[in-house]
Amino acid sequence: MRCRSRVWSSTAAVVLGGLLAAGCGGEQKDTADEENAGKAVSGAYPVSVTDCTGAETTFAKAPGKIVTSNASSLELLLRLGAGDKVIGTGFPPGEGTLPADLDARARKVKVLSDTVIPKEKLLGSGADLYIDTFAAMDMGAGTGDAPTEEAFKAAGIKHIYLKSTACAAQSKSAVTDLSAVEADITSLGAVTGTGAKAKRLVAGMREKVDAVQKAVGSTAENERPTYFFFDFDAGTKQPFVVCNRQVANAVITLAGARNAFADCDGDYRQVGWEDVIAKNPDWIQLGVRNRGSEAANDKAFDEAERWLKSDSATKGLTAVKEGHFLRIGSEQTTIAGVENADTVETIAETLYPGKVN
Rank of each mutant, 00 (worst) to 15 (best):
S310I: 03
A250M: 04
M1D: 13
M205W: 11
A196D: 15
E150G: 06
F91L: 09
M1H: 10
V202D: 06
T58Y: 03
S42F: 03
F91E: 04
D33C: 03
K121L: 08
V271Y: 02
W283H: 13
G193H: 01
I157F: 10
V191G: 05
A169T: 08
N36S: 08
R79F: 01
V251E: 10
L123E: 07
M139G: 01
T314V: 10
S173Q: 14
E294V: 14
G266F: 09
T97P: 05
I157V: 15
A55G: 00
E322W: 00
I66F: 10
A71E: 13
G204L: 07
G90H: 04
V47R: 05
V15F: 00
T343V: 15
L326K: 10
A304K: 03
T31H: 12
G126K: 01
T350D: 12
L16W: 12
K153V: 06
V271K: 03
I252C: 05
D138M: 00
D138E: 13
V202W: 09
K208C: 08
D138F: 00
E56H: 05
A180Q: 14
E150W: 03
A146G: 00
I277M: 14
Y130G: 02
L188P: 06
T50D: 12
R306V: 12
G193C: 01
A234L: 00
Q332N: 14
V209S: 10
T194A: 15
N357R: 14
D33Y: 08
V209Q: 04
A154L: 04
N259F: 07
M139Q: 14
A174C: 05
T236D: 10
R200G: 04
F152G: 07
G26W: 10
L20I: 02
